[in-house]
Design a protein around this nucleic acid. Sequence first.
DNA 1: CGCGCCTTTGAATTTAATCAATTAGTGTGG
DNA 2: CCACACTAATTGATTAAATTCAAAGGCGCG
Lengths: 251, 251
Amino acid sequence: MVLDADIPSVTGVLRYVPLFAGLTTEQLHSVAGLAEARRLKAKQSFLRQGSSADVIYVVLGGQIRVSEITSDGHEIIYRFIGPGQMIGGMAAVGGMTYPINAQAVRESSLLAWRTDAIQRLMRQHPEIALNAMRLMVQRIEELQRRCLELATEQVRQRVAHTILRLIGQHGRRVARGVLLDLRLSRQDLAKMAGTTLYTASRLLNIWKRRKIIAFDTGRILILRPHELVRLADGPTPEEVPPASNDLAAPV
Amino acid sequence: MVLDADIPSVTGVLRYVPLFAGLTTEQLHSVAGLAEARRLKAKQSFLRQGSSADVIYVVLGGQIRVSEITSDGHEIIYRFIGPGQMIGGMAAVGGMTYPINAQAVRESSLLAWRTDAIQRLMRQHPEIALNAMRLMVQRIEELQRRCLELATEQVRQRVAHTILRLIGQHGRRVARGVLLDLRLSRQDLAKMAGTTLYTASRLLNIWKRRKIIAFDTGRILILRPHELVRLADGPTPEEVPPASNDLAAPV
DNA sequence: CGCGCCTTTGAATTTAATCAATTAGTGTGG
DNA sequence: CCACACTAATTGATTAAATTCAAAGGCGCG
């Protein structure tokens, strides 16, 4: 119930959290006053589908993996969440259950508000409710885009789109291109794109051979993002010319 | 700008609209006072993806088809909307563009509120904002379920799930089963389930032969909903026994 | 009655999943 | 620091699923 950091410093962090955008310092203080801190170990899962949605979280540091599992064991990963982002927004309206699982990928720290606290805050500061709605609209749009992709595109395009989306959310510009700073297994990527581990691996290696991407200690480095956009958009197969002289230096 | 029906009667209708649930009669009056009526002819499209989201609608009567079209011409149908339901919720937060197209399937009548009006109402009656969030959460959950289906299920299951979802939203209990009271072409169904017209047609006819469904003047009659649930859930192919004596009476 | 649209069905083709086997990479403890 | 164990990734071969293409059939509507 008690915050393990002092309220002013938490306030400073909240200033850059979209859910609390537009609030004054005073208002942020009152928000911070109701927060509870939570620290998670790697692989620790803290939000389970079906359990009652009574806490809303904001990620301060680390990385969270949001997924859903079907009754027959299939899993889909919806997204990876990083600092500043909200999770468990459905707790803002009472009486719901979480529709997703959330698990820390690496050690992470969060702030948490109980349903009653966040509802009190929304009543006091309607700006928060509007922000929450804005975020929900964004989620709806993202989910619709994914439905569209899953329904109309082939796997190649979906995997490309998935990587592009991840770049947008977690990419870091580096010398040789854009680094996707996530520890993302082929299996994870497959579960985001709605395909299999094998197909994802094959595609990535084709693109590696074409020098569109490179692998760097398990992370993906996008050398030519524009090419990836082409792959994502167009129905242009164009296989790599039969693996010519491939004596290239290791990336 | 002016309502073509009198405010009290509109108030009576709004009483059963989820977006305005929990409001007093007085409050409903003030909501009705800001409404504009709109009437649509069949096939008329009134909300286009990309245009600025400045009006929120509630359907009074008729049927609306909500879809999105990709740059390369593929279309996905998200849902069909009937009386009492809201559309264009993203207009409740300013500065967005609609992510979807909406078109009247048959002649329909709507109520409309401009962004400024609905925001004023939400400020006056925070209950509306909470209701809107509740509806958005529902949409998020529905979209997630569809992503999950599209990503992990085979076409047979997706088509079955699509029909089941439509039953839940538009089904009417009749003597022989549940009637899906929509004029829904094979193409429409395919565009909802993320498959092709041909595959959808094949599946429906297999199920017709198995007496799980029947066709009634273009509409679908579900004779054995439970069977459809089995098809949707389980990976149980079980083809129809080689079309034995099929001298059955026409459905 | 005939025209257009939607639907059904067959056959060929393509795509991606599945299965199987190997290889690479990562971390751990001796 | 190296050997070992374990997990993740690659790749080939096969199979299954669904799309695509093609053609015929049915139904409603003017």
